[in-house]
Design a protein around this nucleic acid. Structure first.
Lengths: 211, 211, 211, 211
DNA sequence: GATGAATGAGCATTCATTCAT
DNA sequence: GATGAATGAATGCTCATTCAT
């Protein structure tokens, strides 16, 4: 069952201002979290980085964990938006998959620090917020699940019904792997090579058997 | 270039004692790190959990990060040992791969909290220790790389030379994914189903073209 | 020497408005002070409770301590008003005392949280305001002092001149004790029993010796 | 039902040391609480006043409220000890009462700031600790209750059975009143006068009716 | 007169590490 | 080699008050 996004309460009422300031906060915090990690970043540093006084910052959040949540939400929104962009451009599901996976790989490349951030820090979220973040992760995986289902329908992709979800997760993880294993992969592959080869592996498996 | 394992200095000289006590420390710390994470676990808690006084514990380590390193090393050693167990039992590389991948999946299942722990906390290691941990991760990946190379030689596996490393990483990550995506995967697959289906996907790609 | 009530400056000039708004503030604050104490109540909470914005509230006071003073003054005014109500109804001083003491006990019963509030929080007032509050307390005690003096004059009460003040304070404190020891007294006495028995003790001492 | 004294946990195990350090803490804190009140005293000030570092102080308490409890307990213990001192010296209950009340008055005089402290700050204790403090207050009141009961038995004091508890509370409150109304009483009475006159009032009421 | 966003000094508390015994 | 009391810098967070609108 789909859960509504958690509401982070703020003292300030003006919703336009809340949105604007929170964007500021996220921008400041992301940089710091990437560089030092969530726990080693202090609230004072975040405040300084986003140009607010510590008191003002706390008018827009309730705790440091809220900042982490806002950051995770921002990353997921950004990721989802980018992935959905290449979604409706293709005729066949096979073609759609190719485009979306390619898009995934290049997006992960550009957002790699952010992807890693979620992998490493989401665990520090309070339960309620964490489970929403996980749900979001699943929704994003759902993008690929849907393409695979379409491919089953239009006959351009060959997947077992029971393997659809698995394949979708595989694709996501193979994509994100470029972020969290980049220390090893970068020494042997460029993002272009990575994309081309992984794409081949993925699509090969999905060739519909002829005849 | 292969680096030697970092030496964690200890005040105590008796090497047998050092090993024994550090094993104690690791056992206490692992439980806590899994439950609360590295940062939220205090050194006092670790000392209590491993039955040493805080002062005594510090005779065997130099900092809290050292404990994290010992834990990571323990996990990697355990993982590598288990993976290598199924290594030399097979005739063909293809057969060997099948066994090792299966072993990987079931091992990840049993060690899933530990796998996740490394993913989430290794970033808190000091540079020097972290890069040794990453190297270890690569060594483990090397197990599969070697099988694939053997498969190229004995003709039982079809891999492009340039894709060997990639495939090895894919296998590792598909395996570990059962740990760090278990919140989603467990709802749809048992470890047996997961193993069977992923194995099929992996091996399909590697069928040598006949004729 | 009787001091004039301290003037709490306000930015707003319209005296009618000042009085009205301050009444609002007191009503909101009293509830909160009783429930959480002065220090644990925030100015924001007071503002919310009295339906003013924090900015507007500060147009009518100068500091949080001012609110406490207004509250103390309100309580004392209320107490004094109630006590004076039963003052001029009797012929003899003895009769007057009986009525006033009874009134005191029942009034303390009804205002017990307020009485306790003054006991516990008045110390947080700035010097100047505090000493006015103490003076007010003494004025209220004076009500009983006057009755006792009248009783010396009309011969219906037997008190030593040097004991008059003491007796007046005794009466006040025995009355207020029902508020600040209610946790113990309520388990053994109703307010009716308390009133009857204390009254007996007080009046017995004051029977004029005959002959 | 009599409750056991709450146990304030301490990190330090050595009970002798705990007792010693807590005594230090109480001595430092009492002075500050009297001067500035509980809320306006900072933990740093307490630490400085008792000659411990802030970290060390927190090895012996768990929160600032614990300090307040220790202070209250110290005051009550001191008070009770002093009151019990004059308890077993007399033949008749009447005589005993005289001595004990006199002792009460002079003790309150010497401890007046401490008495006031409990009146004003006990409300800031957490529920559990507060109710123990109230129980202690009742136990102390019990000293006078017992004397009155003895007086009923040996015929040297005339009290109604139903008024015993009330009288005991009256005595305590009349005694403590010298502390919390000293700003008014000191202007008119010395402690000797206060004692003599209140004693007369109390004992008069308790004269057994002859014949 | 009314509003409420902004401020930042100040607070209680924690915790990795040391070192005298 | 073992112990655990001592340390104090550092942290997340609060809140009375102001002032531009």
């Amino acid at each position: 069952m789909k859960r509504n996004p958690p509401v982070i309460p703020s003292v300030v009422k003006d919703q336009r201002l809340v949105k604007e300031r929170r964007q500021q906060i996220v921008e400041g915090a992301v940089r710091l979290f990437i560089k030092k990690g969530f726990h080693k970043t202090t609230t004072r540093e975040i405040a300084r980085a986003c140009g607010l006084s510590i008191g003002t910052m706390y008018e827009y959040i309730q705790s440091k964990e809220d900042v982490l949540y806002l950051v995770c939400e921002y990353i997921h929104t950004e990721l989802e938006t980018r992935l959905r962009k290449s979604l409706y451009e293709s005729d066949t599901a096979r073609d759609s998959l190719r485009k979306c996976v390619e898009n995934l790989f290049y997006t992960v490349d550009e957002m790699s620090s952010l992807i890693v951030l979620i992998y490493q820090e989401a665990k520090s979220l309070p339960k309620e917020l964490m489970s929403y973040v996980l749900q979001k992760e699943e929704e994003i995986t759902g993008i690929f699940e849907n393409i695979l289902i379409k491919g089953m329908e239009d006959g351009t992709l060959s997947v077992d019904e029971n393997t659809v979800k698995l394949m979708a997760h595989d694709i996501m993880v193979i994509g994100e792997m470029w972020a969290f294993r980049r220390w090893a992969l970068k020494r042997h592959y460029t993002i272009d090579q990575y994309t081309k080869r992984q794409m081949a592996l993925i699509l090969d498996k999905l060739i519909p058997r002829e005849g």
